[in-house]
């Protein structure tokens, strides 16, 4: 793997569009994400944020334009399994498997996809469960955990695949304020470890703290891409200004 400063961007998106029937969800999107960079995607509801990050691991295949990840062109000929080994994802509703224990949630994919042995996968899973702060919950079922704990499991489960890129789709949207603090602090820790991250969120303080750049979206288009210190103080566009005014009012 290349680590020179001249290495190509981890993610490169050019002219990407996505339609749901007549509705244009993504309209000719262009952006790059460097290796190790933290990107936060902001924007009002229905602006295409979630659709955008779902195209990055092809859970929603794009209709036109190109997507390149780690120098590889991603299209319908790409093996989706290889792609998803490289790009992990955490959802708003955790999407844990309720019939499996916390540990089994974490080791299923490493064993089935990465062909790890049970012992190997368990060692790895315990390490990440420890990292997300719930080492004692390994044998419980998801239903026995609080929302915040479930989201930590979901993060650990994604990390067990040792991805190069992590996608977060509003990871704190379903949590109460106390749980948000916990999950955000884990994401802070992750960002320090240098994993490439694309995160859709409404957590403004968190965005400002961890983001290298903010992507602001509206109506399926990228309105601006700016460093957080500029975005939160003097955004270039009126729409971003309006959005921030509304967000900060609460």
């Amino acid at each position: 793997m290349q680590h020179e400063p001249t290495s190509p961007p981890m993610i490169s998106v050019r002219g990407m569009s996505k339609l749901f029937g007549e509705f244009v969800a993504l309209d000719r999107i262009d952006f790059d994400v460097s290796r190790g960079e933290k990107i936060v995607v902001l924007g009002p509801s229905g602006s295409g944020k979630s659709t955008l990050i779902r195209t990055l691991n092809r859970i929603e295949p794009h209709d036109s334009g190109t997507l390149t990840i780690d120098g590889k062109l991603i299209n319908d000929k790409t093996d989706p399994i290889q792609l998803r080994c490289m790009v992990g994802m955490v959802f708003q509703n955790y999407n844990l498997f309720p019939h499996l224990s916390v540990l089994d949630n974490c080791i299923l994919a490493p064993m089935r996809v990465r062909r790890m042995s049970r012992i190997e996968a368990t060692t790895l899973a315990r390490r990440y469960l420890n990292q997300v702060g719930i080492p004692d919950q390994a044998d419980k079922y998801p239903i026995q955990l609080s929302g915040g704990q479930q989201q930590r499991v979901a993060i650990a489960r994604a990390l067990c695949m040792q991805p190069e890129v992590m996608l977060f789709d509003e990871p704190t949207a379903a949590l109460d304020p106390e749980a948000i603090v916990g999950v955000v602090s884990i994401m802070d820790e992750l960002s320090e470890q240098g994993i490439t991250t694309v995160c859709v969120t409404h957590e403004m303080a968190f965005s400002r703290r961890i983001a290298d750049r903010i992507i602001f979206m509206d109506q399926g288009k990228i309105v601006e891409i700016t460093p957080p210190e500029i975005f939160f103080t003097s955004p270039k566009s009126d729409r971003a200004q309006n959005f921030l005014n509304q967000m900060l009012r609460y």
């Binding site: 399994i81 290889q82 792609l83 998803r84 959802f91 089935r112 994604a158």
Partner: peptide, 9 residues
């Protein structure tokens, strides 16, 4: 969705 994001077949 969750299962396919983990790369399961």
């Amino acid at each position: 969705l969750g299962a396919s994001a983990l790369g399961l077949s």
